[in-house]
Write a protein that binds this DNA or RNA. Sequence first.
DNA 1: TATTTCGTTCAGTCTTGACTGAACGATGTG
DNA 2: CACATCGTTCAGTCAAGACTGAACGAAATA
Lengths: 172, 172
Amino acid sequence: MSCDMIQDAETDFIEGMGLILQADGMPRIAGRLMGLFVLRGGPFSFADLAETLEISRGSVSTNTRLLEDLGVIERVAIRGERQDYFRLAADPYAQIVERKRVRSIRAEEAIRRSADTLSEAGPEALDRIGSLANFFRVLSDATARALQDLETKDGNAHPARGTSTPSSIAAE
Amino acid sequence: MSCDMIQDAETDFIEGMGLILQADGMPRIAGRLMGLFVLRGGPFSFADLAETLEISRGSVSTNTRLLEDLGVIERVAIRGERQDYFRLAADPYAQIVERKRVRSIRAEEAIRRSADTLSEAGPEALDRIGSLANFFRVLSDATARALQDLETKDGNAHPARGTSTPSSIAAE
DNA sequence: TATTTCGTTCAGTCTTGACTGAACGATGTG
DNA sequence: CACATCGTTCAGTCAAGACTGAACGAAATA
């Protein structure tokens, strides 16, 4: 029943994840896959993914590899089966944050390197460049702490804690 | 002399900023403009920007507005001048972080909203969705702290205060 | 009021990247 | 060994967005 046909609410979730990931500069299909794996965690065969999401095998190949590289999903082997299977990774989000962090660090380095070359620039210019570099350092520091937060309060095993949710959402 | 022709090192810096901003999903020209404003802070006329970066007036209009909305630059009036002038804003980076934060919050809200609709889902599924929502919460929290960090150690106006400046820059 | 000088907007071009579908090599099966 | 099945790769198509240049309206000047 719930094998090849997807409920409406689930479709919404999957498509929503597609849009969220896409807004972050990733392929929409990667987001849809991620949504599907979050929804049902269990191992999916390569063919299942193509059929369920109605996408080509090429896209399945490309985007599963992408998500695998990101550590969001992992490839598992099932005995007696020739197909590849995938399931949600144990810690799906850590490497996403780590990648953001690395990008900020790279940016900061590149900027400081430029600052060295631009010794002819005035002191105010060097100040402004320093502030820019500092901006990227703040970003990388923030992602570093986010990484620690993720490890600590994983949220998975500890579902409905009291939550200091501002809950300002209800207002609207 | 240094009016219409740009030095090599400065060009590298400007182009580098173009690439960094582009990697973040923004127009490359916005990055180039930002690089130019960081390099020399002073007010530039609309025409200057088009000429210096060799871009069309249309692009100047679009991307100055974009950077203005982001709070990176601000439009200033100069008496006796009909042209618009722009200069680097006092706190150029705060709103960029704030925008990232809002996006994470929106994502978390959307996911939790979906979770309500998906009450038919099993408890493990709700767990996984909760973890996903938690992930975006961690991101928004991190950006919130980054925002505070930016306000605190602005680095620009308070150069050599008593210092907690890491000043590790000199080392390398 | 006529004219010039702004900045914005919009149609058109072009680049980039996602996605598809078919061809291909690899690996098990008969 | 021939055959079938699986996943990857690659050329081709398509859509999204950046950028340009010209047309346009607004505002100051004469």
